[in-house]
């Protein structure tokens, strides 16, 4: 399922510790690891809003836009 509109995913890099959990847990491979280990959004259209990254992030650093 690919939605036509990309989902808004916000990453707070002041809070992110580049642990790599969100990148690896995403079932749709929306994120990739940048050279410093922090997450990088590669295709927000693949996001299904399962919210796993947001709910598991130990540092409250990733936020997925909810449906309006």
């Amino acid at each position: 399922m690919t939605s036509s509109m990309p989902v808004l995913i916000e990453i707070d890099f002041d809070w992110c510790k580049a642990c790599g959990i969100c990148v690896n847990i995403c079932p749709r491979k929306v994120l990739a690891e940048a050279s410093d280990g922090s997450p990088e959004i590669i295709d927000a259209r693949r996001c299904t809003r399962c919210l796993l990254c947001e709910l598991i992030c130990p540092d409250f650093a990733i936020r997925v836009g909810r449906e309006k």
């Binding site: 002041d14 809070w15 510790k17 580049a18 642990c19 790599g20 959990i21 709910l55 598991i56 992030c57 130990p58 540092d59 409250f60």
Partner: peptide
């Protein structure tokens, strides 16, 4: 207080998130 003192990838932050939810 944030970011917390916990090491990158420590599970405590996830527990705190679930507790708050």
């Amino acid at each position: 207080g944030v970011p917390s003192i916990w090491c990158p990838g420590c599970g405590i932050g996830t527990v705190v998130g679930s507790m708050l939810r």
